[in-house]
């Protein structure tokens, strides 16, 4: 019964159903904006990205980014525009430079050092005849 109702409802609607329009005027720019703003931090509610934030400033910045993109600015130029105003804080992807070298490469160094130390220790361990359990 309920199903039938839904079907009827759908049929009735179909007669004057419109097609949902994208919220944005320019879907290409919107897609770029979305991809970019995922990696940007909202300054007001500092725990969300510029893409997800509902803060008025985030809204303004998205508007501004759209304008810049319409003017033909590349993604890098737009990010540079924001960094010039708010600093590296806005980037969720920190730049790679001297100050962040440890951040970016430290974990890999840790992995390599760990692997090296483990290998040395295992070698020593396997070659140590004083250890018991040789043929257990």
């Amino acid at each position: 019964m309920k199903k039938l109702f839904v079907v009827l409802l759908l049929l009735a609607n179909a007669a004057f159903a419109g097609v949902a329009k994208p919220l944005a005027d320019d879907p290409v720019i919107e897609a770029r904006l979305k991809a970019m703003s995922r990696e940007l931090r909202c300054l007001v509610c500092q725990n969300s990205t510029l893409a997800d934030s509902t803060a008025p400033l985030a809204e303004d910045l998205r508007k501004e980014i759209r304008v810049l993109m319409h003017e033909g600015k590349t993604d890098q130029e737009v990010v540079a525009y924001l960094v010039a105003r708010y600093g590296d804080f806005v980037r969720y992807r920190p730049p790679v430079n001297n100050e962040t070298a440890v951040l970016w490469f430290g974990p890999f160094a840790l992995l390599l050092i760990g692997a090296f130390v483990l290998y040395r220790v295992l070698k020593k361990h396997a070659g140590n005849d004083e250890l018991k359990g040789e043929d257990a």
Partner: peptide, 13 residues
């Protein structure tokens, strides 16, 4: 009124 100057000055709060 539209907060444009604010953006140029990096105003966030």
């Amino acid at each position: 009124a539209d907060g444009k100057i604010g953006i140029d000055y990096g105003v966030y709060g």
